[in-house]
Amino acid sequence: MSEDLSEVQTCRIPVASLVPADSPRVLGEVPEHVRLLAESEQPFPPILVHRRTMQVIDGMHRLRATQLRGESTVEVTFSDCDPGEAFLVAVRSNIKHGLPLTKADREAAAVRIVGSHPQLSDRMIGSAVGLAPVTVAAIRQRSSPADEVETTSRIGRDGRVRPLNSAAARVNASRMLAAMPDASLRDIAQATGLSPGTVRDVRERVQRGDDPVPERQRFPRSRSRGKHRNDLVSVPTRDLNDLLRSLRHDPSLRYSEPGRALLKWLFAHSAGLKGGDKLAAAVPSHALYTLAELAKAYAGEWLGFAARLEQQIHEDGIA
C-alpha cells in the first residue's frame, strides 16, 4: 500500500506535461498557501507524479507555486503504483507533511477509500486519513449500501488478513490454551490467525469463566436494519426436515463412522424449542438467570460450530 521512495531518483520535467491531482482536498488548493510558497526562497521538495498517467499524486500547492513563480519546469519523483492506489498514496502523503487536511477532507477521503478499498481495516484506513478507527467504522456504516456484498476479512496495518468474525478462531485458541497452557501467545496467534492481543483476551475470558467469543461476534448487528441477527446461521430456505433427510441420504455421511455419529447427533437435537414461550413461562423466577445463561451457552456452542463450518467453506473456496 505504500512505496519506499528513499532511493528513487528525481528529475525536472516541463510543468505543462503534468495532469492536475485527484486531490483529497474537498475545496481544492488554498490560494493563500500557494502565494506563501511562491514568495518563499526555499527550494520545493519534489512533486510526486504517477509515471504512466503523469497525474500529480502529491504536491499541487508546490506545482501552483512553481507556476506562480513563472518557472517552466519542476522537480518530480515518479511513482509506479497502481492507478487505484494513487488516491490512497495522495492522502497518506498529505497527512504526513504540508498543509494539513481539514476534518471534512479527511472524512471525505475515508468515504472514498471505504468504497474503493472495502477490504482495508478501519484501523488501516484511519491511519491513512488521520481519523480514529471508530470514526472510520461509523463512516463505513453510513456510506456502505445495504445490498453490498460484505467482505469476510480485512487487511490490517501489518498487512495480515484477518476474518471479520473470529468466533471459530477464538474457540480454537481457547482449546489450544487449555491443551497447551505453557504455549506463548504468539505461538497460538500464529496457529489460529489471531493477533497476540486477541489471544490474550481469549485467555482472560476463559480465566474469568466467560465465553471466549464476545457477544457482538456471537450475535452480530445487521448493518442495514440495525437489528440483531445471526450472520453465521441464516434462516434456511428449505424445511429443516428436508435438510436433515438430504443429509441422511448422503453416502459420504452414511458410510463413515464420523458421518453416522454426526447424523445421529443432528437428529437427536432436531426437535428445537417449539412452544418456547410456554416453556419460558413455566420457569420459576429464581431459575430464570441460570436458564438464560445455560441457553446462551448452548447457543454459543452452535454458533461456534456454525463458524467453523463457515470458515471451512471460506478456506476450501466453496462458492
Rank of each mutant, 00 (worst) to 15 (best):
P214N: 13
D242C: 01
F267L: 15
R218Q: 09
E257T: 14
A282S: 11
R225K: 07
S222A: 12
V283F: 12
D231H: 07
S256H: 05
Q217C: 00
R238G: 00
R216S: 08
R221T: 05
K278C: 00
L247W: 04
P214C: 00
L244F: 07
K227Q: 14
Q217N: 09
D242G: 03
P220Q: 07
D231L: 05
R216Q: 08
S270W: 08
V283K: 07
R248E: 12
R225I: 02
R216Y: 06
Q217T: 02
L247A: 11
L253Y: 10
P220D: 00
P236D: 03
L243A: 04
N230Y: 04
H228A: 04
L244W: 04
P251A: 03
S256C: 09
P214Y: 07
A280V: 02
F219V: 00
R223F: 08
S252C: 03
A268N: 15
L243K: 00
P258V: 10
G226M: 02
A271S: 15
L232I: 06
R225G: 01
L273H: 02
R245S: 12
R216A: 13
L263M: 13
D231G: 11
R216V: 12
A280H: 02
L247Q: 09
G259F: 06
R260F: 10
S256Q: 13
P258K: 11
A280K: 02
P220W: 05
A261L: 15
R248Q: 12
A281P: 03
R221W: 00
G275F: 05
V233N: 09
S234Q: 14
Y255C: 09
K264S: 14
R260W: 05
A280Q: 13
R229C: 04
G272F: 06
R245V: 07
D242W: 01
L240R: 05
P220I: 01
V233M: 06
A271E: 14
D277H: 09
R225T: 11
S224Y: 03
R260C: 06
H228S: 05
